[in-house]
């Protein structure tokens, strides 16, 4: 227990250390996306929930970022999910996740912003897909998918996005 405790403590510290600049940026991006996207009114009350599927690559950075922040008067909550769940407004599917399709299916027909890292994430039905371009984080937005999900994406965000092929 002491060991666990002793290991957990350094491991937590290691986790923090292990968070790469890439994910630090991506956490920021995800946080910023929320600011440029409008959810339909029927998207439920309560906090705006960001769900991280499978393994959390952000460490505590994302938590730190969204803690105390509000979007349109709604607090932001962060949750790590191991399988598709209801109640997520944003679902991030990291590269490490083996089955992003399940999460996409789950999100299908609901106002859920799906963000993924896989190169074919957008083609598979995801709304926003991250990519790396010479150390810079880029993203692709499938506007059609967003409209299908009932999300309104700010044009300003769209100008920054790469167009899907």
């Amino acid at each position: 227990m002491l060991a666990v405790l002793s290991t957990s403590a350094p491991s937590a510290a290691q986790e923090v250390v292990e968070v790469t600049p890439e994910y630090r940026l991506k956490a920021e991006f995800i946080h910023n996306f929320i600011k440029f996207i409008e959810w339909p009114d029927g998207a439920g009350g309560g906090p705006l929930t960001i769900c991280v599927a499978g393994q959390n690559p952000f460490g505590s950075t994302l938590t730190t970022q969204v803690e105390g922040d509000t979007v349109s008067g709604r607090p932001i909550a962060l949750r790590v999910i191991l399988e598709p769940e209801d109640g997520c407004h944003v679902v991030f599917v990291p590269r490490t996740s083996l089955g992003p399709q399940a999460y996409l299916r789950q999100a299908q027909g609901t106002p859920t912003l799906t963000v993924g890292e896989a190169p074919d994430f957008v083609t598979q039905g995801g709304i926003i897909g991250f990519s790396m371009e010479a150390e810079r984080v880029r993203f692709t937005i499938d506007q059609a998918a967003a409209e299908k999900a009932g999300l309104k994406i700010s044009s300003r965000l769209l100008t920054l996005a790469r167009q899907p092929e």
């Binding site: 440029f36 700010s154 300003r156 965000l157 100008t159 920054l160």
Partner: peptide, 15 residues
Amino acid sequence: SQGVSSALTFGDDRA
């Protein structure tokens, strides 16, 4: 400023 707000937010200096 509105135009550049997203670029600034996302650190897209080129944009």
